[in-house]
């Protein structure tokens, strides 16, 4: 087994983590529901009633998954993710996550251009001659499509303001 095939996280660990995560969301829902009356008033259930019970079911069902996992040792020894897969995911997901803060500062068009340029050159190993037309062409097509055709303005930033594109 090469280093690249080595498991970073086992399926068992992730099953447990996911069940605990779901239970935590359930607990949060119960907590949130308690800001309202969770009882049964004259007019049937009060606003907090439905979320409260949903929260309880989420906690209950995820604990059931947790117990199953622990008792049957579900996925113990199975790989959830290997080093190789982890690298591929990181290479894809980190730029995607960065896309959001960048687009909030610079607008969706500029963020798309930067993102396309970065991924095609750094990951796709495209020469700049090919990458630059893609990175500029895509936002331009988007602009025509959304702002002109569909009349749906997208998030804009300082560049559009400087160019007077509003």
């Amino acid at each position: 087994m090469s280093a690249e095939d080595r498991t970073i996280v086992s399926r068992f660990t992730m099953e447990v983590a996911a069940a605990l995560g779901a239970a935590a969301i359930g607990a949060l829902v119960i907590y949130g529901a308690n800001e309202h009356s969770i009882g049964w008033g004259d007019a049937g259930p009060e606003p907090g009633y439905v979320p409260f019970w949903l929260g309880l079911i989420i906690v209950g069902a995820s604990l059931a998954v947790l117990v199953q996992t622990l008792v049957q040792r579900v996925g113990a020894g199975d790989s959830f993710i290997t080093r190789e897969q982890g690298k591929r995911i990181a290479a894809f997901a980190i730029p995607v996550a960065l896309f959001v803060p960048v687009s909030l500062f610079l607008g969706l068009y500029v963020a798309t251009a930067i993102y396309l340029l970065a991924t095609t050159t750094l990951q796709g190993r495209f020469p700049l001659v090919k990458a630059i037309p893609i990175a500029i062409g895509a936002p331009v097509v988007m602009f025509v499509l959304f702002e002109r055709w569909f009349q749906t303005p997208l998030l804009k930033g300082p560049l559009e303001a400087a160019l007077g594109l509003y």
Binding site: T112, T119, T120, F126
Partner: peptide
Amino acid sequence: AVVAPLIVSVCF
């Protein structure tokens, strides 16, 4: 490598 980032942009 080109298609995936384009799909991501379209999603956002």
